[in-house]
């Protein structure tokens, strides 16, 4: 009988990462459209949902490298579908790896606190890298970055709320048996 090769990442886990990468992109986009784009409520709401989904993803797949793989896939999708994101991808992958290490060092993937800490750091690093790239695009006129700073600051409030919402959701989903430990 033919032996099946054992992989570090199981098919189910890879598919969940893909599903969540799509889900985060689509839901964020839908909330932005519903909210009319650049209004603070929509920006906060979008970030609450995106961060909460990311917490649920890490809580569902408790393996080292999950954030890095998620970021790699999200970046590749941006590159393949829009031809954009090549400049930001290396920084983001590195940020994903650092945050995976933070989770591992802060108590491992079994600890909810470590997951929240890792995702919180990931959100911060994601915003810093995006702002740095934004600066490269608008470096002739740094005043343009001011609005970006305000928008990112408002968005990060949503991320902080999203961390707790995600944790609550992960607990409930685990309780309901939808997320397996």
């Amino acid at each position: 009988m033919k032996k099946t090769k054992k992989y570090y990442w199981e098919n189910r886990e890879l598919i969940i990462i893909g599903t969540f990468a799509a889900l985060i992109k689509i839901v964020s986009f839908l909330v932005s459209i519903t909210g009319g784009g650049m209004n603070p409520i929509a920006m906060i709401m979008k970030n609450i949902i995106a961060t909460a989904l990311l917490v649920v993803l890490v809580a569902n797949i408790r393996k080292f490298g999950v954030l890095m793989l998620y970021v790699t896939i999200a970046s590749l999708i941006s590159i393949i579908t829009f031809g954009r994101g090549l400049m930001i991808a290396p920084g983001m992958i590195l940020a994903g790896l650092i945050c995976d290490l933070i989770i591992k060092l802060a108590g491992g993937y079994k600890s909810n606190f470590a997951i929240i800490l890792g995702v919180a750091f990931f959100d911060i690093m994601f915003r810093i890298i995006s702002l740095a790239l934004g600066y490269l695009f608008t470096r002739e006129n740094p005043q343009l970055m001011l609005f970006a700073f305000v928008a990112v600051g408002v968005g990060y409030i949503g991320c902080v709320i999203g961390l707790f919402v995600g944790n609550y959701f992960a607990k409930e989903l685990r309780h309901a048996g939808i997320i397996r430990m």
């Binding site: 969940i16 839901v27 409520i41 906060i44 569902n60 989903l173």
Partner: peptide, 26 residues
């Protein structure tokens, strides 16, 4: 609805979306 009831929005939008996504992934 999103503006007046943000928590209701999260509850009624996110819970079924996440559950459906996880089931679809399976």
């Amino acid at each position: 609805t999103m503006l007046l009831n943000p928590f209701l929005f999260i509850r009624i939008m996110m819970a079924p979306t996440v559950i459906r996504a996880l089931r679809s992934a399976d």
